[in-house]
Write a protein that binds this DNA or RNA. Structure first.
Lengths: 100, 100
DNA sequence: GACTATGTTCGACAGTGATCGAACATCCCA
DNA sequence: TGGGATGTTCGATCACTGTCGAACATAGTC
C-alpha cells in the first residue's frame, strides 16, 4: 500500500472526502446506504430527485473518495458503504453525515 | 437559543460547516489560527496566497459557519477559533482539518 | 431475435463560488 | 490634518460542478 491509514491523511485526500460528503444528493445516498444491508441496493433503487446520468456522476465521486464500493450483478450495479475503512481514514466524518 | 447543540445539527447547518471546511484557503486559516493564542492574530496577518477582498470573503464564510469569532481592536480585526463550540456541534470535524 | 431494464458516456448548459482590482471607510500616528 | 495601515464593498471574471437529455452498451426476458 502506498498510503498508511494510521498516518494523518494528506490534504488532497481530505479534500476529496470533504467534496464527496459536501453534496446533499451524495449525503442522501450515504444515508440510504447506511440504512440497508451491504450489497442489497443497486444504483437505480435510490430515492433521489436527479436523473440517471447525474446519479452515475455522484457514484463516481463517492467511489473515488473511498466511501463506497461497487460490484456488478448481472444487469445491476450493487453498492456497499465502506464504513469501517472510511472511519479509519477520517474518524467521525461519516458519523456526522449519518446522524442527520 | 433557537438551536439545541445536543440535538443532531440540521442538515443545512452541516452543509454550511462542510462548505466552510471544504476550501483549502479556509483550512489554512483554521490551522494558523489553531497554532496561535486566541485573539492574537488579525485578518491581514495570515500567510495566504490571496488578495484582501478574497480574505474578507473567506472570513465571512468561517464566521457564518460558527468556526471563528471576530473582535475589532482599533485598526485591526482580531480572530478567535471557536474550537469548543464547533466541536460540540460537529464532533471530530475540526480535528480532521487540524490534523493535516 | 426483439424488447425492456439498468447504467455509462458525452456534450451542453446554468448556477455557484473563488478570485481580483478599484474605490471606499476607519483608525492610528506623526 | 495628512498619510499610512487595515478591512470592506462592489462589480466583473473565470473555473468548476451539478444537472439534463440523447445515444450507446449490456444483460435479462418473452
Amino acid at each position: 500500500m502506498s498510503t498508511d491509514s494510521r498516518r494523518p491523511a494528506a490534504d488532497s485526500e481530505l479534500q476529496r472526502a470533504l467534496d464527496a460528503v459536501g453534496d446533499p444528493v451524495r449525503r442522501s445516498i450515504l444515508r440510504q446506504l447506511a440504512a440497508a444491508d451491504p450489497w442489497t441496493i443497486a444504483c437505480g433503487q435510490f430515492d433521489l430527485p436527479v436523473g440517471k446520468s447525474t446519479l452515475t456522476h455522484h457514484f463516481r465521486s463517492l467511489v473515488e473518495a473511498g466511501l463506497l464500493e461497487q460490484r456488478d450483478e448481472g444487469n445491476r450495479r450493487m453498492n456497499r458503504l465502506m464504513r469501517d475503512e472510511f472511519d479509519r481514514r477520517f474518524p467521525g466524518l461519516l458519523d456526522l453525515v449519518l446522524d442527520q
